[in-house]
């Protein structure tokens, strides 16, 4: 009886220790190792059979060389900054596109809402890769968007959109839109409509009622939605590599290339550690926001 109870904790716990925590510690260790031309391409491995001497030896070999390398080469700084910039602005754009949709859904008649919800959730279940792929045919020089714009006479020469940062923004807004709509819709839907009636009775126009009542009350959903877009967008790999150009610098792509093309595992690991350090702040803020909301609900 006691035994099964312990087992219930031990199995998932052990699984996560071995397949989540330990791998992470390995990344940390390799980020502090030297690059070597070998398989696996890095040097120190901790050999516990050597006893304390081996452990001491192991620690003496660790150094911050790879992190120093990252600060020396401005490619990495630029990649971090441009990832932050792309993630930040695409979050704003997603909010600008997503809020009106969520607001429209919340105002829709009751019997429409399940269908509208379904329409928002459906793309979320559909393959991410396919949704990114769909934009290649639309944004390319001979793609549908250019055909359309030339067809209506708006432009005479096709625009170059694919393989630029603009395509990356469009890709992020498109694929992460459901993450923005759903939390905002959830807060708007729960909102007490009698507050709006009260505001209008007290002389607010519909527009004023929106800015004084609806907008402030939707804040928790807006914040949650922004984090749900910003956090994954920062480490995004698929979108910049399919829609972005050679000039599009995003840290997920840099990590991938360090690992698969340059086979420089220590540098790839150091890139991963710094990406994580950058992500910790938004993640903690997000957790706090969620906690505050749970407390407000309960």
């Amino acid at each position: 009886m006691r035994f099964t109870r312990h087992l219930l904790v031990a199995i998932p716990y052990g699984w996560l220790l071995v397949l989540f925590l330990v791998p992470f510690l390995i990344v940390l260790k390799i980020s502090l190792s030297d690059t070597a031309i070998a398989i696996p391409p890095y040097t120190p491995t901790l050999d516990l059979s050597g006893g304390w001497a081996a452990v001491r030896d192991f620690f003496s070999q660790l150094d911050f060389e790879n992190f120093v390398f990252l600060t020396d080469d401005d490619l990495y700084w630029k990649a971090y900054l441009s990832s932050l910039q792309i993630a930040f602005f695409s979050t704003i754009f997603t909010l600008l596109v997503g809020f009106p949709i969520a607001y429209g859904m919340a105002n829709a008649p009751d019997e429409w809402r399940p269908a509208l919800m379904m329409l928002v959730i459906l793309p979320f279940w559909t393959s991410f890769l396919i949704r990114v792929y769909a934009w290649i045919g639309i944004l390319s020089t001979e793609g549908f968007l250019n055909q359309f714009l030339i067809g209506i006479g708006l432009i005479s020469e096709p625009l170059t959109i694919l393989n630029t940062d603009i395509a990356v923004y469009i890709g992020i807004v498109y694929t992460y839109l459901p993450f923005m709509i759903l939390p905002i819709y959830a807060t708007l839907e729960r909102m007490d409509v009698s507050l709006l009636e009260a505001a209008e009775d007290l002389g607010c126009s519909r527009r004023q009622a929106f800015w004084y009542v609806t907008a402030p009350l939707s804040r928790p959903g807006v914040i949650a939605g922004c984090f749900l877009v910003f956090i994954p967008a920062l480490g995004e790999f698929v979108i910049p590599s399919l829609l972005g150009g050679s000039g599009t610098l995003m840290i997920g792509k840099v990590l991938w290339e360090e690992f698969f093309s340059n086979r420089d595992w220590p540098v790839a690991s150091a890139v991963a550690i710094i990406l994580l350090l950058i992500l910790i702040i938004p993640i903690i803020l997000f957790q706090r926001n969620q906690q505050a909301q749970r407390e407000a609900d309960g």
Binding site: F20, L21, P23, V27, I30, G252, W256, A268, L279, Q287
Partner: peptide, 23 residues
């Protein structure tokens, strides 16, 4: 334990993939 349950949800895929491969 609860940290390890929530961390993978926000962990960039490139990092999860890299760390598991190294393991």
């Amino acid at each position: 334990f609860s940290g390890m349950i929530y961390a993978p949800l926000v962990m960039p895929e490139v990092i999860t993939g890299l760390s598991l491969l190294l393991l």
